[in-house]
Write a protein that binds this DNA or RNA. Structure first.
Length: 290
DNA sequence: CAAGTGCCTTTATC
DNA sequence: AGATAAAGGCACT
């Protein structure tokens, strides 16, 4: 099946899947293969056309955020020359609407890891605990459910290379499974309320919560601050902070809670209701330029 | 090639 | 409140 993208509907499949917001997509020749919930599907882009198999146009529209008005978002977040450059570099990058459970697990695992390592952990988790799905003669693995992960053991999770994250994931999975907690319901809550609820889960701090809110719960105002974004703000937006604050934050390896709050609030106030989009463009730009 | 550094941080403990 | 340490292990240089 195909979707035509008219000129106003800026979209780059590659930028969207490569920018680091999602970890399990695989590119084989020109097709991208993905597993969302219990379905494997593939998709490719040819200029102004999206072609896909084994899924529906409405799912593609929703999952890839094709309903977001990118032109409007660019107008809103384009506050200065630096973000302008970042946007120019990754035109058509969109925030995905990921599955909240998979997203939550992904970012609990992501703390203090690089992207290659995160991919490996999630692959291992899926391979061991996810349902096998055959597609085009190849074995894929669905993302394991909270029930499945809540019923394993910390030891088995540790064997997936999770390290100290195994305990957090185990408790979170158990809570969600036993309480029958529906993460999707957080979509209806405000950003602040949904964030407070996410912070209750072990292994979820402000940064992880903001990622889940942005990448799976439709909170486009969320502005996750990781080490890259921290550097971007301190380097290119330092005039918005006292010199002393910038110096101190630069020297420290990790952010204190107060420092996180300060950078996070700056992002949301400065870039506005689509701050999350600004974050993703800045993040991707900082990591790929040069 | 070995060894060091860094990684989309959170939590526990002062 | 605010600082500090500890917690896998992989990837990159």
């Amino acid at each position: 099946m195909k979707i035509r993208l008219d000129n106003s509907m800026l979209f780059s499949l590659d930028a969207t899947l490569c920018c680091g917001q999602t970890f399990r997509w695989e590119k084989r020749s020109e097709w991208w293969y993905g597993i969302v919930r219990d379905t494997v599907f593939k998709i490719r882009q040819k200029k102004n056309e999206l072609e896909f198999e084994n899924t529906s146009p409405s799912f593609v529209n929703s999952y890839f955020g094709l309903n977001d008005d990118l032109q409007k978002i660019y107008r809103e977040i384009c506050k200065d020359n630096y973000i302008k450059q970042a946007i120019k570099m990754s035109k058509g990058l969109r925030i995905l609407h990921q599955d909240p459970w998979e997203c939550l697990v992904s970012y609990i695992c992501a703390t203090y890891k690089n992207i290659a390592a995160i991919r490996q952990m999630l692959h291992e988790l899926s391979h061991r605990f996810g349902e096998k799905i055959r597609f085009e003669g190849v074995d894929f693995y669905a993302f394991p459910t909270s029930e499945k992960l809540g019923k394993t053991s910390v030891t088995e999770l540790t064997q997936c290379g999770l390290g100290y994250r195994a305990e957090y994931l185990y408790s979170t999975a158990r809570t969600i499974y036993i309480d029958n907690f529906d993460l999707k319901l957080l979509r209806k809550e405000s950003y602040e309320k949904a964030k407070l609820e996410l912070l209750e889960f072990p292994g979820v701090g402000a940064k992880v919560a903001d990622c889940v809110l942005l990448f799976s719960l439709g909170k486009l105002e969320a502005f996750p601050v990781d080490v890259w974004i921290k550097r971007v703000i301190l380097k290119y937006y330092s005039e918005h902070f006292p010199k002393e604050f910038v110096m101190r934050a630069f020297c420290r390896k990790s952010l204190s809670k107060a420092e996180y709050e300060r950078l996070n609030c700056f992002g949301r106030e400065y870039f506005g209701e689509y701050a999350g989009y600004a974050q993703e463009y800045l993040y991707h730009y900082e990591r790929t330029k040069q």
